Amino acid sequence: MKTMLEFQGVSYAYEAQADGNAVVSDLSFSVCKGEFVALIGSNGAGKTTTSKLMNGLLKPTAGTVLVEGVPTTDLKTSAVARKVGMLFQDPDRQICQNTVSDELAFGLGLRDVPEEEIERRVGEVLSDFGFDGQSAPFMLSRGERQLLALASVVVCEPEVLILDEPTTGLDYCECMHIMDRIKKLNGAGTTVVMVSHDMELVFDFADRVIAMGGGRLVADGAPEAVFRDGAVMGEASLMPPQIIELSMRLSSSRFGGLFDRAATSSAMLEALRTAGFEGRKVS
């Protein structure tokens, strides 16, 4: 499978840091085409710094970050941006035009895309996302502005999409609207890397989890396997999704491993019925 992003012993330290300690240290992993990867960890774990190293906004202090086999230190940030798009946590720091259509066209214009191609792509995205092109972006709701920010990245057709806490401040319906769009893009072949504190969201959408703690990689694997590893979750200072936590609490020898793999609500209900808890309070 084609490797889109690769970290080889990557460390990064901000010059302004008085102690000179690295924010991320000795990171080594790769992300292949079509994967949906979640970067998880507590505040200060180095997730956002790692995402900025991926899209070339930051260049490593040590080690190498490669985008399709080319070190980011050999590429201009604009060149990396043609392949790696980024949706920031706050859409108001990303939106800068007076109409939705102009916002969608802005990034394409910076890439010197021909006018006819810009019109075609903007028209398609307006139709796909259901926007009125003449609407004023800052008159939209918070969720709609986040969706517009996503659309402004999507219209540029990046091969890799990086999401920094894409659902912060959204209600459940807005959150699912955004994530359904992202899942659709991933299904069509776009590689997705999502930074998130929401373990329920990660469990529902990601195919792979990279857990960080103190700027280092502490686990890399399937979401359920990572979430069931108490040592890893402790090092990353995170709690597993509720269904996994309940499954782990109910797993014991007296149930014969009945709850060990109950990772969905339907599987949990079936396990409870089998264990004879249906209609009874579980303490």
Rank of each mutant, 00 (worst) to 15 (best):
Q94L: 04
L238I: 05
P60M: 01
G257L: 06
R120F: 12
T274M: 09
E124M: 13
V24I: 09
G279P: 03
E6L: 06
D171S: 06
D207H: 15
R273P: 04
M212K: 05
Q89D: 05
V37R: 00
G20N: 09
P223H: 03
F138R: 13
P137D: 08
M239V: 08
K281S: 09
T99K: 09
L217T: 00
A211L: 05
T190I: 06
V195I: 11
L163A: 05
F259P: 03
L238C: 10
S127Q: 15
V232W: 03
M4V: 06
A263T: 14
G9N: 15
G256Y: 03
L185V: 14
Q134I: 08
D207G: 15
L53W: 01
R273L: 11
Y14V: 07
E115F: 14
A222M: 15
R82G: 10
F106D: 08
F131E: 04
F138D: 14
A275Q: 08
A151F: 04
L58K: 02
A206D: 02
K33F: 08
E200K: 11
E174N: 14
L163S: 00
A263K: 12
I210L: 11
L58V: 11
L140F: 06
V31H: 01
R273I: 13
A22D: 03
G130W: 09
K52N: 10
S152Y: 06
R216V: 05
P223R: 07
H197Q: 11
S265W: 09
G187L: 13
Y14L: 08
V37E: 01
V232A: 06
L163E: 01
L140Q: 06
M139V: 15
S101W: 07
A225H: 14
S28F: 03
G169I: 02
V113I: 13
M268R: 00
Y172C: 11
D102Y: 11
D260M: 12
K52V: 08
F203M: 12
Q8W: 01
R120N: 14
S252F: 04
E278Q: 12
L58N: 00
R228G: 03
A263F: 11
T190G: 09
M239N: 09
K184I: 08
S266F: 08
L170F: 03
P137Y: 02
S51D: 03
H177N: 15
E119W: 10
S253T: 08
G133K: 02
